[in-house]
Design a protein around this nucleic acid. Structure first.
Lengths: 330, 330
DNA sequence: AATATTTTCGCAATCGTTTGTTATTTTAAT
DNA sequence: ATTAAAATAACAAACGATTGCGAAAATATT
């Protein structure tokens, strides 16, 4: 069965295409009688306007592009879910690509966005150090770009992110509150700015307000690595009494070690992490965490995108506030 | 900056639009010299073909639609990730919507798919009992539909799913192998066919091969409910020694109870679940599970879609095989 | 009844491509 | 040198919608 078009409707009704078009959008020029006839037939024949034709003619698409390293990830899936929710509400549609942390894929995806004349792009860089000229080029083509999560240093562009400094501070604050003596603090990939920011803020706060707390700083790039690190350090003579996990990945490794070693939480070991809360809630007691929500960030990113599209270009950096969620692990 | 078009290139080069078009696609009619000139300028001006115009003209879109209840979910995120991987490889683009388990949203999303003339739809019903006429209508409009996960009973349509019978059987088999005496088997929402299939196959196998094993069957629709159920039943005088969890959700609740009650796994309690493996791997010991992979299902769905698109219409039901993964919980 | 006004609708251009057909130029064949 | 053949490029009609403008018909004004 062929798709119904305005032309087809017009033929069957012995009307012109323009009349049919206007009738369907309730244009005042068209009489009520004609409108009724047109709309009835349209309904009958399952007429749906061809988005390609509309977009070609009106020169604007209702599509927003999204690039994430991978969809299957706590943070990104929530970010996307929020984005999709808002987009749907506002009549937009999402075109989602995975870069798989590969710059070549990323460039290719951007090309497809351009071909589809998307009206905006949400981008998470696949390489924090990469060249962002291509994004500037998007802006030249009047396609606003909102960066999130892994963002370029460049400050002529729009970015949204978690208030990572606050995350570090809140974590440190609660560790001090617990009156910890010896702390193992595990951070993520040291190459990522997010790790740097969280660590710096954590460390500064810690040394300023509780200089005599013994803190061992260390980096881990996977769950397994975190698990090993924990086990190795736990065998030392002076046991630490509190562990800080910068990400869910690290928390997962640490918790496996804690379960394996049958360490009691929180009496023998305090645990605190930065997370959206899903992983912390899998354990008993629930792990205390500083909340960073991909969902909230998605909402913020969308708002920012709309602003950006209306004002032409809004260079700005916005952050989502973080807060401490008490579990039972501290 | 305005977008470059064939027209613009043609003007600047003093050539006709058709020549430019053909030059860019290496048509044999065009001389090497002209091709070189055209391609150079195109590159220079960042020319990207307008996908809307192309699709309008060629009457085919390279877009595939996906409807899931929510993106933020272990199963769906992996399904989508697989789909996106394959789509990208094959020059397709994904348009993803969340139905939020709401039929109205679902219908609206289908409408947008029609407007965009997507060349295929992957659909997960938001209500297992719903009317699927609208999907038949998609087929009439020559848009193939592949159902997954929550599929209609109708067998004139294409569906892919996990081999859920095998899942039930494999779980039962390993419970018998453990020599369990008293089993608590928790299944999901009884309204979903997936729960019914898994339960029936589990139960049949169990009663056939080990009729004297005492099995308590029960349903839970959330993690919290599963946790409560476990706790309530564990307080009984005759303790069960093995628990079966039909989904990750249920496993999460059960494991919280197990941790809270400080039950030793596997000595005091055997645990087995059906999962993609992520959640089982968060615990120590790792929970044994029957593997069902959203990722694999996504791959299968894509293959099926391609077949469907080529052969015109392939009514078929395909399943992904399941296998038992040994953790340390049995 | 003649003119002015308003309603109602059709014409035609346009968005950016693709592609069948035709026209022109170049090269080859006699 | 003339003609045939091959190479190269232009013309023009779609695809399906939107929209400014003008024409015809219906109604209102005098």
């Amino acid at each position: 069965m062929t798709n119904t078009t305005l032309k087809l409707l017009a033929q069957q009704l012995q009307l012109s295409i323009s009349t049919v078009s206007r009738a369907l959008k309730n244009h005042p020029d068209i009489s009520a009688k004609t409108k009724a006839k047109v709309q009835a037939l349209a309904q009958n024949l399952d007429y749906e306007p061809n988005a390609n034709a509309v977009q070609l003619r009106t020169q604007r698409s209702k599509i927003l592009g999204v690039i994430v390293p991978t969809i299957a990830n706590f943070f990104y899936e929530n970010f996307i879910a929020a984005l999709e929710e808002e987009s749907s509400k506002n009549g937009y549609t999402l075109m989602i690509f995975q870069s798989s942390h590969n710059v070549e894929n990323e460039l290719n995806n951007l090309k497809i966005f351009r071909q589809n004349r998307v009206s905006g792009v949400f981008a998470c860089l696949s390489n924090s150090a990469e060249n962002i000229d291509v994004y500037h080029k998007m802006n030249e083509h009047e396609i606003p770009v909102v960066f999130f999560d892994i963002v370029p240093k460049d400050n002529t562009i729009t970015k949204v992110r978690m208030a990572d400094e606050r995350c570090g501070v809140l974590a440190a604050k609660n560790i001090i509150k617990r009156n910890a003596k010896k702390v193992l603090a595990i951070f993520g990939d040291p190459a990522l700015s997010i790790s740097q920011i969280r660590k710096t803020s954590f460390q500064n706060f810690m040394t300023d307000l509780s200089p005599k707390t013994n803190v061992k700083y260390i980096n881990a790039t996977s769950s397994n690595e975190a698990e090993e690190i924990f086990k190795n350090h736990y065998n030392k003579t002076v046991k630490f009494d509190t562990v800080f996990c910068m990400t869910d990945e690290i928390l997962i490794g640490v918790m496996k070690a804690i379960q394996a070693l049958q360490i009691k939480v929180p009496s023998e070991m305090g645990v605190i992490s930065i997370s959206n809360g899903f992983i912390p809630n899998l354990y008993y007691p629930v792990i205390s965490y500083v909340e960073t929500s991909g969902f909230q960030l998605g909402k913020l990113a969308f708002v920012q995108m709309m602003a950006n599209m209306q004002t032409g270009k809004a260079v700005d950096e916005l952050t989502v506030e973080a807060k401490f969620i008490e579990g039972g692990s501290m």
